[in-house]
Amino acid sequence: MSSKEIKPNKEPFAGAYFVGLAITLAILIGVVAVGAGMPPAVSGFVVAFGLGLTVSPKYARWFLIAGIFSALMGFLGSEEQVAWGGIGLVLSQLIVWRFIKS
């Protein structure tokens, strides 16, 4: 064999990462568009909950801590959207941690 060995392609199929990127961006735009038409507390919850479900279980603990911090700071500062977004993030991370463990 030559000094340049051919490495196997890590993608499941050609362009798989681009398809994944397009799906992720579509979900992000959809969640933000739906959240834009709601009251602040509801939209904060929906957007954080929806996007929180896409987090890798490997990082769920850190996002859970961030959600708790956001909820505490939001309620202490009377920022409804941040507070309920933190609650949504906490709940989504508990779901990810419990049911989507890898």
Rank of each mutant, 00 (worst) to 15 (best):
F45I: 05
I23N: 06
R98G: 08
A36R: 11
A60I: 00
S43T: 08
G50F: 02
T54N: 09
A60R: 00
Q93I: 01
S2W: 10
V46P: 01
P40L: 05
G50T: 08
F99M: 09
T24R: 08
L51R: 00
V55E: 01
R98I: 07
M1R: 10
W84P: 00
I95V: 15
G77Q: 11
A41D: 11
S2I: 07
F75W: 05
I95N: 04
N9V: 14
V42H: 01
R98Q: 10
V42Q: 08
F69C: 14
S2H: 12
P8Q: 15
P12R: 06
S3N: 14
A36M: 10
S102Q: 13
I87H: 02
A83F: 03
G37Q: 09
L53N: 05
V34S: 05
V46W: 11
A66D: 07
S2Q: 12
K4V: 14
L72Q: 09
N9Y: 07
K10F: 10
M38Y: 02
G50Q: 07
R98P: 00
Y17L: 10
S102L: 09
A16F: 11
G52Y: 02
L64R: 04
A22W: 08
P12E: 14
T54C: 10
I68S: 06
F69R: 10
G85K: 00
A66M: 14
G30Y: 09
W84A: 02
R98L: 10
V42N: 03
P8V: 13
L91E: 07
W97T: 06
M1E: 11
F18L: 13
G20L: 11
P39Q: 11
A14N: 13
S3M: 12
L28A: 12
F63L: 13
F13I: 05
V34D: 06
A66Y: 08
F75S: 09
L21P: 00
I23P: 02
L91T: 08
A33F: 04
G35N: 03
E5Y: 11
L21I: 12
G20C: 07
G30C: 05
F18D: 05
V19K: 09
T54A: 14
F45T: 01
I29V: 15
G50R: 06
A48M: 14
G50L: 04
I100T: 11
G74P: 00
F13E: 09
I100Q: 15
S43P: 04
W62P: 02
S56K: 14
G35T: 02
A48W: 10
P40H: 06
G37S: 10
G20S: 13
I65H: 10
W62Q: 15
F49N: 07
G74S: 11
A33D: 03
L51H: 01
Q81L: 09
L89G: 07
L72F: 15
V55N: 04
L94P: 01
P40A: 07
M1G: 15
G30W: 08
E11W: 04
I65D: 08
A16P: 06
G67M: 05
F63S: 03
F49G: 05
A22N: 03
A16D: 10
A36T: 06
P8D: 14
E80P: 07
Q93E: 15
V31P: 00
V42M: 08
S56R: 11
